[in-house]
């Protein structure tokens, strides 16, 4: 990531690549959005404790399921298919 924007713009000016600035900004925005999408999320499954409970978390592109929610949905789908 760019830490000092002034220095970065000065560098682009010096090397005659200022035209690239919009593209760089676009890339930075999409990187930021990507990082946001892949940021950690957690959900707790407590809506019906007699059926399922626990949590699911999503972090760095890995899903950890400690609730059995996926398994329950899979079983339901298999039976109703």
């Amino acid at each position: 990531m760019i830490k000092n924007y002034d220095l970065f713009i000065a560098h682009l000016k010096r090397t005659g690549r200022l035209k690239l600035l919009p593209l760089v900004l676009h890339e930075l925005r999409s990187e930021e959005a990507r990082a946001k999408r892949l940021s950690s999320k957690t959900e707790t499954a407590a809506e019906n404790p007699s059926l399922i409970s626990g949590w699911r978390t999503l972090e760095n592109g890995m899903l950890t399921d400690r609730s059995g929610k996926s398994a329950l949905i899979d079983i339901y789908k298999k039976i109703t298919a």
Binding site: A33, R34, R37, L38, L58, G61, M62, L63, T64, D65, G68, A71, I75
Partner: peptide, 15 residues
Amino acid sequence: AWSPQGGSEEVGIVR
């Protein structure tokens, strides 16, 4: 037939 699967699985997010 179900057995609790520990660990994590790789997932993606629709962009």
